[in-house]
């Protein structure tokens, strides 16, 4: 079996990049061997890709539940841990409306912290290891990384160039 090689093709526009994705699929590159990096968010449909999975909403929801539980523990649990429960005026020891405020703030706080954390977890941030990257991406280019058999490198390079790739080169992991 031939050795595989990771190639990188850089495109200026979305259309040729989308065509290149189709061509790579036609050349037999499996979907999970194709990676796209871009300087602006491209939704999956633009490049004919399947929906990316994200755990961020689930993590956010988990955070909301956790926040609610922490809030509940504080507003319902703390007063009875005091030697003498605090009573303000004729309010009950656990008054409803103020408890709602505390519950709301803690639910939102931990939900938003979890959402933030979710981005880190799902994206493996921070990660400072060398990675396959091309700095042109932050200048608006679209880069497609794909694996191809080493002996077919020229064929793939020519296919990409024919579709408008500005450059096609061997992708190497380097420090960002």
């Amino acid at each position: 079996m031939a050795e595989t090689l990771s190639l990188l093709a850089v495109f200026s526009d979305l259309e040729p990049a989308a065509d290149a994705m189709d061509r790579l699929r036609a050349l037999g590159v499996p979907e999970d061997h194709l990676n796209v990096i871009s300087g602006i968010p491209l939704n999956e449909a633009m490049l004919g890709r399947k929906q990316q999975h994200s755990n961020v909403p689930k993590i956010a929801l988990g955070g909301a539940v956790l926040g609610f539980l922490v809030g509940s523990a504080l507003v319902f649990g703390t007063p009875y841990n005091y030697p003498v429960p605090i009573q303000v005026g004729r309010q009950p020891i656990i008054p409803g409306p103020p408890s709602f405020i505390v519950l709301f703030e803690l639910t939102m706080l931990i939900m938003l912290l979890s959402t933030f954390l979710g981005v880190f977890l799902d994206s493996y941030f921070p990660s400072y290891r060398p990675k396959q990257y091309v700095a042109d991406v932050s200048d608006g280019k679209i880069a497609i990384f794909f694996a191809c058999p080493e002996d077919q490198k020229d064929k793939f390079s020519q296919a990409m160039t024919a579709l408008g790739a500005e450059k096609v080169e061997v992708a190497e992991a380097k420090p960002l």
């Binding site: 990676n35 796209v36 990096i37 871009s38 300087g39 968010p41 491209l42 999956e44 890709r49 990316q52 994200s54 961020v56 909403p57 956010a60 938003l112 959402t115 933030f116 979710g118 981005v119 880190f120 799902d122 994206s123 493996y124 941030f125 921070p126 990660s127 400072y128 290891r129 990675k131 990257y133 991406v137 932050s138 960002l176």
Partner: peptide, 21 residues
């Protein structure tokens, strides 16, 4: 920058989080 490259996944997670926020 945390090692951000602009992969589809990174944008997806970022965008979802920004919408939630």
């Amino acid at each position: 920058a945390l090692g951000f490259r602009g992969t589809e996944g990174e944008w997806k997670h970022l965008r979802l989080a920004m919408n939630i926020f």
